[in-house]
Design a protein around this nucleic acid. Structure first.
Lengths: 110, 110
DNA sequence: TCTATAGTTCGATAACGATCGAACTATAGA
DNA sequence: TCTATAGTTCGATCGTTATCGAACTATAGA
């Protein structure tokens, strides 16, 4: 099962991860992936050009936040939540629970 | 007791906070403040010029991460941990516990 | 009043990163 | 083999930001 290279756990760098998440487009992608579990690029692109999205996925991949499994023509992306939890305990939880989307979810469900 | 303006809690933005923390110099300042509690700029500056540091403190202040209390000539900086905990539960904890400095502390104390 | 100290502001520069169109690669299906 | 689809790579542009020296402000203390 082919896939893009993902950096090893030990090599993940907090600054790099924070910088990857500190962008509205990428945080949106991450938030959607959190809800969807796995998705191809098309499902996560709004109306932006493919080249822009490819760039953001690359940043997220290289920072270690997501993993890309390639199946034929489609690239299936998913968050590396378990691994991130080992490397940076609590980090992704605290960010995913504090996105605007998460705060909206809390509001509407209460 | 004079001080720099700090943005209101509701106005704090996750992306802005993450971007402020996603810089090695600033994350180092924040990490030191976490250990020291309160410190003036001089205590947090390495060998960098004052104007660079003033810039980083401004970014941290405007993002809502730190508060600056002015006492005479000195500016006493401290993290707004309690307020940040209310606005973004768990966020600062998870970041402060995952800095390189924190990981070093854990290694040497075990 | 003079001086030293602490920090800000200003202006310039340089590096980085987001954005996007166009060309390219690779796979699936007809 | 041809075509459509999914995504990458390349190159250019543009806005943002880090860096720093120099000038400035304000307070404390002699």
């Amino acid at each position: 099962m082919p896939c893009h290279d993902s950096p090893d756990l030990e090599k993940l760098d907090l600054i790099t991860v924070l910088r990857a998440l500190a962008d509205p487009v990428r945080l949106d992608i991450v938030q959607r992936l959190y809800v969807l579990g796995e998705a191809n690029c098309a499902a996560l692109i709004g109306s932006r050009p493919k080249s822009s999205m490819s760039h953001h996925f690359q940043v997220l991949r290289e920072s270690g936040i997501l993993h890309t499994r390639i199946e034929g023509v489609q690239h299936h992306n998913s968050l590396r939540l378990q691994e991130l939890e080992i490397r940076f305990p609590g980090l992704m939880d605290s960010i995913l629970n504090n996105t605007e989307a998460a705060q909206l979810r809390r509001q509407t469900s209460s």
